[in-house]
Nucleic acid binder design. Structure first.
Lengths: 189, 189
DNA sequence: TTCGTGCGTTGAATATAATTGTCAATCGGC
DNA sequence: GCCGATTGACAATTATATTCAACGCACGAA
């Protein structure tokens, strides 16, 4: 789970503030906070409440969405990801299915997943994605893949590729875990 | 200044949590917080720290940028704006110039501004926008408008319209405040 | 019924963020 | 040089978020 990076709000806020030619005190006055608070936030010595941050951003002004876009956008420069940095994106209602995504998706034209299917796991038939293509290779175990009516069981080394708009379904009929590495383009959801 | 709406994080978080089939306790465990905290946040009885919110969103998972996009996107449904709800967007370095924007801009194809120029106020010559058109009508006072070399002084009732990419400048040469209502499409910045 | 389990809520205690008042450092004007 | 004004930082206090440990409720199974 992507619990790593704890968002360097301080620097970003400081940068924005300076870009708008504001001192800590000026910004504080506009936002209804105090300069001390801003000092602490900018040095990342406290994590402001969402309410406080909103006051600050309103006073600059810049929206929350914009602020965090800028902030997280920089992840695009990230190249290497440790296994534990992949983010789990499966709905959790789907027992036994684990979809772990490489990086941020939103900021990339490619979405790569490390999928894991427990014995009996089933994505269910109703999986509608947006435009794009999906492809993957089975890394371990076996899995039944259904795409627009066509069914096969793939095993380690086998692969698939189809248009994301076609209805598709993955089921692990075996009694061992199945792992798949897949890719979608563009990020579909 | 848009200090009004204090972001209904609670409902949104609750919705997201339910959509992912998580209980408060499950989410709390994943995020390293407690169920009580989530209860309070969802009822908007506290404003979580950015760090706490990030933990929660990471555990769902969803990015901060995405979260606030969804949250602020809903403003699109907003139709009426009281005068005090317009957001000041002038760089603040420009003394005497006030640009107050209607709504959110980002989520709309149209940006409407209520502009106010103190006597002597000057936007400066270097104002480069993105593609699109700008137009406006002078509501009160007089103002000198320069667009790509052409200069005139407009007064109440007069208007202008030009391609945003042309260099343009507004100066209040008179000794009374000048007000202008203008529109740009698409939101240019 | 009577358990047991899991849900969301709440009050009191604790950890943390925000304010207050002050500090030294810096910048211009004289 | 001196001066007042302004900046960012810090320690101690106050306000607030978060935890902890209950509680009441709903649902199923014995």
């Amino acid at each position: 789970m992507d619990r790593g990076k704890s968002l360097d709000i301080g620097d970003k806020l400081k940068l924005l503030r300076k870009q708008h030619g504001l001192s800590q005190r000026e910004l504080a006055a506009r936002a209804g906070l105090t300069n001390g608070t801003i000092s602490l936030i900018e040095k990342n010595r406290t994590s402001p409440s969402v309410a406080s941050l909103k006051s600050l951003l309103d006073a600059i002004p810049i929206s929350m969405a914009e602020f965090f876009s800028i902030l997280e956008e920089e992840d695009t420069t990230k190249v290497f990801y440790r296994a534990e940095e992949l983010t789990e994106i499966s709905p959790s209602s789907q027992g036994g299915v684990s979809l772990r995504q490489l990086g941020n998706a939103e900021n990339h034209a490619l979405q790569v997943l490390h999928e894991s299917y427990e014995p009996g796991a089933d994505t269910g038939p109703e999986w509608l994605s947006h435009e794009g293509e999906e492809a993957g290779i089975v890394v371990r175990g076996r899995i039944e893949v259904t795409v627009d009516g066509a069914v096969t069981e793939l095993q380690a080394g086998d692969g698939y590729m189809f248009d994301s708009r076609l209805p598709h379904r993955f089921r692990n009929l075996s009694n061992t875990v199945c792992e798949v590495v897949s890719a979608c383009t563009p990020p579909s959801f």
